[in-house]
Amino acid sequence: MSVTTPSKLQKMIASGNFAVTSEVGPPRSADGAVIEHKGNLIKDYVDAINVTDNQTSVCRVCSLACCIRLKLMGLEPCLQMVTRDRNCIALQSDILGAASFGIHNILCLTGDHQHFGDHPKCANVFDLDSIQLIQTVKMMRDEGKLLGGHEFAVRPQMFIGAAANPFAGPNVAMRVSRLAKKVAAGVQFIQTQCIYNLDKFKEFMKLMVDRGLHEKVAILAGITPMKNVGMAKYMQKRVPGMDVPDDIIRRIGGVPKEKQAEEGITLAVEQIQELKEVEGVRGFHIMAIEWEEKVQEIVERGGLYPRPQLA
């Protein structure tokens, strides 16, 4: 995988080191300082910082504004973009806007249905889906063209990412097949769903390697530390597409309440160590949900610190 954009994340992946990304969730108010604070907490421990785009359909400060803020702080943002809320005019407009500020990473997502969020009665857009968004960003970058046909000179230099969930239905083979479609559309890196069922993830990666897909797209394994057994149970029962084996519940639940957070971090660190050995894994995407202050510890104990400084 060679470097084709100014993205620092792409450079890290190309260098052969494990890449580390994390994410920050914008606030549900106009308080811009929140993102600044979260960005500062993790900046030295990651290569790029994702900003979620109204995640779980809960209205928040927009991803683009937060990414610009991080960029102006000298950090490396990754613009998460869902197709649920904007049509292709708005999506392309935001991509151009992001690129105009030197944002070079984008994560193309369809987005959760608004049913799950704080505006369940609202209309949705879904003009494009994630795969079409990948195609669109690629076309804008490589051909200097909008979907409508307009050609332009200054192209958005985007390192294109997407998500993959090896644990969703109906089976692993279909999930690999769908990821192959994203690769065909032009995706360059993947941040996976939080991994708890390592056996299933390995099965997924084996199929990826068998098809040579791991050479075409960089897989960043998704890691989310469990804060306590309540969170583990919630993830197991309530979050669609999440695969939390019972032994994880037993392990977190098996320690006293005040030690559960620590156990959760230790578990995340062990997962990173184990996943480092899985062929095709090129890095980690650490989603410490509203627990950004723990990213440092996970990265350090996971043997991913200090982050290599690339020229």
């Binding site: 608004q114 009665k121 609202c122």
Partner: peptide
């Protein structure tokens, strides 16, 4: 007021 679109296509 804004319409409740859950009974339309938007609601699945």
């Amino acid at each position: 007021d804004p319409k409740d679109w859950t009974t339309s296509r938007d609601g699945g």
